[in-house]
Simulated assay, not measured.
Amino acid sequence: MNLSDIPLFSMLRGRMGHLGERQRLIAQNVANSETPGYTPQDLKAYSFQAQMRGVQMTQAGAPARTQAAHLSGTVNRTAAASTFKAVRSKDSETTMDGNSVVLEEEMMKMSEARMAYDAAVGFYQKSLNLLRTAARPPGR
């Protein structure tokens, strides 16, 4: 069994990828805190709707029904594949040389991203342990 076929693990992997990319951008902002004219970057918030763009689709444009008891529905197919795009965002202060990186704000963003990443890793590990327990033969 491939873990990427399980939607929960796929979404957790996407969330961890988003948070890793966010940490990379925040580190880039901190590294350029003395660069004249530098505007910090951040990622758009990770959303459930963005993950639903990657849902397996049928020919009619509805999510694939894997069981007869599932309800049919529709998903907007015009959305592009889920990729992370950096957006320039002004922080609360801009220095005389045009740099708008505020180190305190960047450190807060970094700790927030780190806590969210740790939570996602913990949830991933607990879900994996649950699968291992379910797959174990009785009496072991």
Rank of each mutant, 00 (worst) to 15 (best):
M1Y: 08
S4T: 11
I6C: 03
I6P: 03
S10Q: 13
L12H: 00
L12E: 00
L12R: 02
R15M: 07
E21D: 10
E21W: 11
R22T: 09
R22P: 13
Q23V: 07
Q23A: 13
L25N: 13
A27Q: 06
N29W: 08
V30G: 03
A31V: 04
A31I: 00
A31Y: 01
N32W: 03
S33D: 09
T35H: 01
P36G: 02
P36W: 03
L43C: 08
K44E: 15
K44F: 02
F48Q: 12
Q49E: 10
A50K: 06
Q51S: 10
Q51V: 01
Q51H: 01
M52R: 07
M52P: 02
M52D: 02
M52W: 03
R53G: 15
G54W: 00
V55C: 05
M57I: 03
Q59F: 04
A62T: 12
A62E: 14
P63C: 10
P63W: 11
A64W: 11
A64Y: 14
A64G: 01
A64T: 11
R65G: 01
T66V: 12
T66A: 13
Q67W: 04
A68F: 07
A68D: 11
A69H: 09
A69S: 13
A69Y: 05
L71P: 05
L71H: 11
L71Q: 10
L71R: 10
S72L: 01
G73S: 14
V75Y: 01
V75W: 04
R77K: 14
T78S: 15
A79W: 04
A81N: 05
A81P: 08
A81S: 06
T83V: 11
F84S: 05
F84G: 02
F84R: 05
K85W: 04
K85T: 11
V87R: 15
V87I: 15
V87L: 11
K90S: 12
K90I: 03
D91F: 08
D91C: 04
D91E: 12
D91H: 10
S92V: 10
T94N: 06
T95W: 05
M96A: 14
D97A: 09
G98H: 05
N99F: 04
V101A: 08
V102D: 13
L103I: 14
L103Y: 06
L103A: 04
E104W: 05
E104P: 04
E104H: 06
E105N: 12
E106M: 10
M107Q: 10
M108P: 01
K109M: 09
M110A: 13
M115K: 02
M115L: 13
A119K: 10
V121H: 03
V121E: 07
Y124L: 01
Q125Y: 00
Q125D: 11
N129W: 01
N129S: 15
L130I: 06
R132L: 09
R132M: 12
R132I: 06
T133M: 11
P137M: 04
G139P: 01
R140E: 14
R140M: 12
